[in-house]
């Protein structure tokens, strides 16, 4: 069996603040993204605002990229973050697809 090699580089002092801020903004931008999609589905916003929603998702991706680089992630963490970002992108869409289906079924 090959012994796994774990490398844990030290985080530079000046990197801590950007790390915490970017990690927080991953979720905050994620909330904006999901929130705008919801408002559009509720017809409180025009469809053109999808651009804005995806823009926030883009910012989310950027923050995630920045975070994973700054904490010197191993390949596995990088993959975990990619999975999480795809999940963020798709969850509101899956959710509203399901909601529409169930409303058609139970409310008409």
């Amino acid at each position: 069996m090959i012994e796994p090699l774990y490398i844990r580089p030290v985080i530079a002092i000046n990197d801590f603040l950007p790390i915490f801020v970017s990690a927080a903004f991953i979720l905050i931008f994620g909330l904006f993204y999901a929130g705008i999609v919801t408002m559009i589905k509720m017809k409180k916003m025009k469809k053109v605002y999808y651009i804005l929603a995806y823009f926030f998702w883009g910012l989310q991706i950027y923050c995630t990229y920045f975070l994973t680089m700054t904490i010197h992630s191993q390949p596995f963490t990088v993959k975990a973050m990619i999975v999480a970002m795809i999940a963020y992108l798709s969850v509101p869409h899956i959710y509203f697809y399901l909601i529409t289906k169930s409303e058609q079924r139970y409310e008409n």
Binding site: Y97, L98, K101, S102, Q104, R105, Y106
Partner: peptide, 11 residues
Amino acid sequence: MAEKKVSVWSD
């Protein structure tokens, strides 16, 4: 389930 076609996703 005869009344209309229903999706498994809303089940």
